[in-house]
């Protein structure tokens, strides 16, 4: 019970602080709160956009959470999702004529494989070479961004557009979009994300591999003495994390744009860290936290347009305040534990 209550309290605290900031900026907190709520949930379109933003956050939140269970900090979800999206778009650009059931499956597999490989690299470097995954994932984010620019601007450039993007993929690639969200691009990627969260829950809590991943994260030395190949588990966990981030490409490329657009992600990969933190690295918690961050993202976008003093940057301030109060809550229980011993 407390495990659920504390993150909720942290969110309320963060939101209150955030409204305090808008009040200082000269907006009535009540007014701001109303716009936020209406922006995120006011119409079927608004709610659809909330879900649209939440979908990639579920994937990246799960990605960070799985790595975290293995005792690894995946800051590379941004790069992994970039390459996932790029790979899906590349398949579509190279073979635009493929028919429906085959095309999206092939592109989806490409997205997963690309993300998996990009995640496995820092996993391998950590396990076999001992270099820290935080540094390697951050650096690989830059490599992925550079690679994506090169492909989108030179190899697969869309000749009919001024924007940095790849050639559109054929119609056979696009996956189902739900009609009842007033045009918001909510696609089959959403149920895929929720289903994936369930599978990850199964993996972590119901399988021997998941137990091994968690054992390595809890105590590498104990896992090693127990005969678990800790290096292999670390590589695997990072590969799974990468694959999860790569899945973002399905929603964006196959379910929304139909091509790879440079800079499509408003830092989904980094927000995934906050989502995992708020969701306590539990798949169900990640889904809930992703919905909250999706709603914040959509709501604060409206604030920018509908208020005088509050700009888009406030979205980040709000999110930051929530993250801070969540981590402060962790700090608080840690201090309490210390006081006892």
């Amino acid at each position: 019970m407390r495990k659920i209550l504390q993150p909720i309290l942290a969110v309320v605290l963060g939101l209150t602080l955030g409204l305090g900031v808008t009040w200082i900026a000269g907006e009535s907190p009540w007014h701001v709160l109303r716009i936020l709520g209406r922006g995120a949930f006011g119409s079927s379109y608004d709610f659809g956009m909330t879900l649209f933003y939440a979908t990639p956050l579920i994937f990246t939140g799960l990605s960070v959470a799985v790595a975290f269970h293995a005792g690894l900090f995946n800051i590379g979800a941004e790069g992994q999702l970039t390459l996932g999206a790029l790979a899906a778009a590349a398949v579509g650009a190279l073979w635009p004529g493929l028919p429906a059931p085959l095309a999206p499956v092939l592109a989806g597999v490409a997205a997963i494989v690309a993300g998996t490989c990009w995640g496995a690299i820092p996993g391998w470097l950590r396990a076999r070479r001992g270099s820290h995954e935080v540094i390697n994932t951050i650096m690989l984010n830059f490599v992925a961004a550079g690679l994506a620019s090169y492909v989108a601007l030179y190899l697969l450039k869309n000749p009919d557009s001024q924007n940095p993007e790849t050639r559109p993929m054929g119609a056979g690639y696009l996956i189902h979009q739900f009609g009842f969200f007033g045009g918001a691009p909510v696609s089959a990627a959403l149920p895929l994300a929720v289903g994936t969260a369930f599978l990850i829950w199964m993996l972590l809590w119901k399988t021997a591999l998941g137990f091994e991943i968690r054992a390595v994260g809890q105590s590498e030395s104990a896992a090693r003495v127990a005969g678990i190949d800790t290096g292999k588990i670390r590589i695997l966990a990072m590969a799974i994390a990468g694959g999860l981030a790569g899945l973002v490409g399905i929603g964006e490329v196959l379910g929304n744009a139909g091509k790879f657009r440079l800079g499509f992600s408003p830092d989904y990969g980094f927000l995934g860290i906050a989502v995992a933190l708020l969701g306590r690295n539990q798949p169900l918690g990640v889904v809930a936290a992703a919905l909250l961050f999706g709603a914040l993202h959509k709501g604060t976008a409206d604030l920018d347009m509908e208020t005088e003093h509050v700009t888009r940057e406030l979205s980040l301030v709000l999110q930051a305040l929530i993250i801070l109060s969540v981590s402060a809550e962790g700090l608080w229980s840690w201090m309490k534990k210390r006081g006892q011993t």
Binding site: R214, Q218, S221, A222, V225
Partner: peptide, 11 residues
């Protein structure tokens, strides 16, 4: 070292 090599202390 039972604590570090034998057990998952927090679990």
């Amino acid at each position: 070292d039972r604590q570090h090599e034998g057990l998952l202390l927090e679990r």
